Amino acid sequence: MANKSLGTRQKMVFRLDPAATKPRNPIAALAKRGGAGSHQKNSAALRQAQKQALKKLPTEGDGD
């Protein structure tokens, strides 16, 4: 027969002080607070976007 009192007993939990925990990343905090964002697209991405925009333009001689 199982001991039923073990299941209802409060479990032992080790609690740490907030000061004793690992410090947070200071760079991430600065980036979140500041105006951090995405960087400018590189030249390959700009060239690809221009090439796709050029394909969308109507060509001369289309007889629609």
Results as ranks from 00 to 15, higher is better:
64 D>W: 12
60 E>H: 06
41 K>E: 00
13 V>T: 01
9 R>Y: 15
33 R>D: 00
18 P>H: 08
2 A>W: 09
23 P>C: 07
50 Q>A: 13
1 M>I: 11
37 G>D: 09
60 E>V: 07
5 S>M: 09
62 D>S: 13
63 G>I: 09
15 R>C: 05
19 A>V: 13
60 E>T: 07
5 S>I: 08
24 R>V: 09
11 K>S: 14
20 A>E: 15
63 G>T: 11
29 A>C: 00
34 G>I: 00
36 A>W: 11
36 A>S: 09
23 P>F: 12
1 M>P: 15
47 R>F: 10
49 A>C: 01
48 Q>L: 07
60 E>Y: 07
41 K>T: 01
29 A>L: 01
15 R>E: 10
61 G>W: 04
54 L>H: 12
5 S>P: 05
57 L>K: 15
50 Q>E: 11
44 A>H: 02
35 G>L: 09
50 Q>L: 06
21 T>A: 13
30 L>F: 04
53 A>K: 11
13 V>M: 02
43 S>G: 14
61 G>F: 09
38 S>Q: 08
26 P>T: 00
46 L>T: 05
32 K>E: 00
11 K>P: 10
28 A>D: 03
19 A>C: 09
24 R>Y: 15
22 K>Q: 15
51 K>H: 14
51 K>A: 15
47 R>C: 03
3 N>P: 05
63 G>F: 07
32 K>D: 01
1 M>Y: 14
16 L>F: 14
38 S>E: 09
13 V>P: 00
51 K>M: 13
28 A>I: 01
62 D>Y: 07
16 L>W: 06
17 D>Q: 10
23 P>Q: 12
46 L>A: 02
60 E>F: 05
40 Q>L: 03
37 G>L: 11
39 H>I: 04
43 S>T: 11
34 G>D: 00
27 I>L: 09
39 H>G: 14
42 N>R: 02
49 A>D: 06
3 N>I: 03
36 A>I: 05
8 T>F: 15
44 A>K: 02
8 T>G: 15
10 Q>W: 06
23 P>E: 12
60 E>C: 08
4 K>R: 11
8 T>I: 14
2 A>R: 12
54 L>T: 14
52 Q>P: 02
19 A>W: 13
8 T>L: 15
35 G>V: 06
1 M>K: 13
47 R>Y: 04
53 A>I: 03
33 R>F: 03
37 G>C: 10
64 D>S: 14
27 I>Q: 05
36 A>D: 05
57 L>H: 06
9 R>F: 15
16 L>I: 03
6 L>P: 02
2 A>V: 09
41 K>S: 00
62 D>W: 08
39 H>W: 04
40 Q>K: 05
9 R>A: 15
59 T>S: 05
28 A>R: 03
33 R>Y: 02
1 M>F: 08
17 D>W: 10
41 K>D: 00
33 R>C: 00
24 R>I: 09
34 G>L: 02
16 L>K: 12
57 L>Y: 08
44 A>E: 04
30 L>H: 01
30 L>G: 01
17 D>F: 13
25 N>L: 07
36 A>C: 07
26 P>N: 01
35 G>C: 06
53 A>W: 03
49 A>L: 06
43 S>V: 13
5 S>G: 07
57 L>C: 03
11 K>A: 14
31 A>D: 03
33 R>N: 01
21 T>C: 14
52 Q>D: 12
24 R>T: 13
47 R>G: 12
14 F>T: 04
53 A>E: 05
12 M>K: 15
28 A>E: 04
52 Q>L: 12
2 A>T: 11
25 N>H: 11
58 P>Q: 08
